[in-house]
Design a protein around this nucleic acid. Structure first.
Lengths: 167, 167
DNA sequence: CATTTTAAGTCAGGCATGTTGACATTCCAA
DNA sequence: TTGGAATGTCAACATGCCTGACTTAAAATG
């Protein structure tokens, strides 16, 4: 890979291989922190990150279909199905047959599901809030901009669609 | 959770629950993109992300010990050992008994290991470089600041130590 | 109406990753 | 010198996610 510095001086210092390397390491360590708190809660419940993600997105889009969730989470239906089955058995998620299309199942959180989702989200938000506060508003804007640029185009669309859906 | 807007107006808009929620989703989608390219390469090699991480950090700190790597990667030594064993068997990593302390093993990449590390890093850097370029230098600075604030204090130290070690 | 497509769920098998437990080797300090 | 601590290894097991093949039901198509 070429060295940004050799191209047009200090302006592109943030594109040197070493800067990119540091960026990658920052992503690695930060993601660990990002998931650490919910992971601790989930560990005691024989649930994993997959359950958290399902609860998160069902909470954000109640009534979403299995197929929809599949596209957002980017896992196979076999994988998602195992997660959903346990959540439904434990009474955290409700699956209702679609009214217009009876093949579809619409997913909702029960009060218990909402409670767990909130517990997990609160743990995660606590850390994010602290980080955002510490870094300041401009840093947060930059953070968001870089992350969005890092997504696969498909995922970027999903992300923007979710944002718009909630205003 | 409290709503930032109610505290002191638009200044803290970036701390509202909805903003934090969007930040969390951005992390989720972006991390997927971040790992997608190396994952594709690894899939054909019966290797996984753990192998990539090991190669990455051994490359960055040649001669590091197993214990050292353990602290950085945050997994159990048994888990790391399986990864290292396969990398050593495949001739990508060399393990040398420590000279001053014979209990320690010092880890180095062989030319083959360096080659694979480079291939993986190049794939990842390509995406990061594009994202950094698209977002611009100030955004990248903010990105880094938020990620650093999001790390566990321990990991933050590891991260800073690695940065200093390479200048 | 018959056929094809779509949505969802299931079973089987595989691989990467993580865990705990037991163990060998080496070092160091009481 | 002896016992504890540190380092690393091996084995067994659990989990999560994957692919592939299949069933069921319903919708779309012709």
């Amino acid at each position: 890979m070429s060295d940004g510095r050799t191209v047009q001086g200090e302006t592109l210092l943030y594109l040197t291989d070493e800067q990119l390397r540091q960026g990658a390491e920052a992503m690695f360590f930060a993601y660990r922190g990002f998931t650490a708190d919910p992971d601790r809660i989930l560990a005691g419940l024989s649930y994993g990150r997959a359950h958290h993600r399902a609860l998160h997105f069902i909470h954000g889009a109640p009534g979403t279909t299995v197929n929809n969730l599949l596209a957002i989470l980017g896992v196979t239906k076999q994988s998602l199905n195992r997660v959903l089955r346990s959540l439904i058995e434990d009474g955290l998620v409700e699956s209702r047959v679609g009214r217009v299309d009876k093949r579809e199942r619409h997913l909702f959180l029960t009060p218990g599901g909402e409670a767990l989702e909130r517990e997990l989200s609160d743990a995660q938000r606590l850390r994010m809030r602290a980080a955002f506060r510490e870094a300041g508003p401009e840093a947060v804007a930059g953070f968001r901009r870089v992350l969005e640029a890092m997504m696969d185009p498909e995922m970027r669309l999903q992300y923007q669609r979710l944002r718009e859906g909630r205003g």
